[in-house]
Simulated assay, not measured.
Amino acid sequence: MSGRVTLVGGGPGREDLLTVAAVRALAGAEVVLYDRLAPHEHLAELAPRAELVDVGKRPGHHAIPQHEIERLLVEHALAGRRVVRLKGGDPYVLGRGGEELAACRAAGIPVDVVPGVTSAVAVPGAAGIPLTHRGISCMFTVVSGHAPLSDAELGHLAGLGGTIVVLMGMTTLPATAAGLVRAGMAAGTPVAIVERGFQAGQRTTVAELGDVVARAAAVRAASPAIIVIGEVVRLAAGGDGAAREVMQRAAGLGASP
């Protein structure tokens, strides 16, 4: 008799941001395949009866390739085990949850999905950056920075407006910043790099699009990090005059003298 697989979104990395459904799935698991950005420090307590398998990928180093992760999911489930695939963020937001779902379904294995808090929204929020704000941004776009964006994609982003959130984008930041300016986005557009969201040492670096690469190099910004591009970044300035001016404009009160 075959088991089943549950794809669990672990949120942005802090255990208290796991959903109730995620905690229940882990408590009943017999095997847990977990990522490095998923909350795993106390995984043995959350999944006390489970075999724990680290399948985490690191930038430039995939110790266990994706096809092998899918094979392990299928193998354990066909052996009758309850398998949890614990992923960072949400399983379907720039993760490979869809591929894992397809692999399990192709093998006839039932799959449940537990959504997770995506870092695309949660980490900017932790840094005080609302992705939308009345009068400033009525939309946000989440893009992968794993590979450089094409000129067409950069053109669409520059023309769309709103807020841009880039995941896995530190390596390609030079190409992204230069490409957006080339596509017509103002070089003075504010950018925030939020490193290690919800972890010890969380840090936010704010710069303008035209000089963000130099600023990132100067402070040695590194992954894991979320990059936020847009006027909402000014709202994280905590009492700074520019932030007050933007908020007053949004409220229709006019700029402060």
Rank of each mutant, 00 (worst) to 15 (best):
M1A: 12
M1F: 13
R4Q: 13
V5C: 10
P12A: 02
R14D: 04
R14E: 05
D16R: 14
L17H: 11
L17R: 13
T19E: 12
A25M: 09
L26N: 14
G28C: 12
A29F: 02
A38H: 14
E41N: 13
L43Q: 10
P48Y: 01
L52Y: 13
D54V: 06
D54R: 09
D54Q: 10
V55I: 15
H62W: 04
A63S: 14
L72P: 08
L73C: 14
V74E: 10
H76Q: 05
R82S: 09
R85I: 00
G88H: 00
Y92I: 03
G97R: 05
G98N: 03
E99S: 03
E100C: 00
G108H: 03
V113W: 08
V113D: 07
V114Y: 07
P115D: 12
A120N: 08
A122T: 09
A122H: 04
P124A: 12
G125R: 06
G125A: 15
A127T: 05
G128D: 14
P130A: 14
H133F: 14
I136M: 09
C138F: 04
C138E: 12
C138I: 06
M139P: 04
M139I: 08
G145T: 01
H146M: 00
H146R: 07
P148Y: 03
L149E: 06
L149H: 14
A152Y: 15
L154M: 11
L157D: 14
A158Y: 03
G161C: 10
V166T: 12
T171C: 03
T171H: 08
P174V: 02
A177F: 01
A177R: 05
G179S: 11
L180H: 03
R182M: 02
A183Y: 05
A183G: 11
G184Y: 01
A186Y: 01
A187R: 14
A187S: 09
A187T: 11
G188S: 14
V194S: 05
G197D: 04
Q199M: 08
Q199V: 07
T205L: 05
V206W: 09
V212H: 01
A217C: 10
A222I: 02
S223C: 04
I227Y: 01
E231Y: 08
L235I: 06
A237N: 10
G238I: 15
G241P: 06
A243F: 15
V246R: 15
Q248S: 15
A250D: 14
A251L: 15
S256I: 05
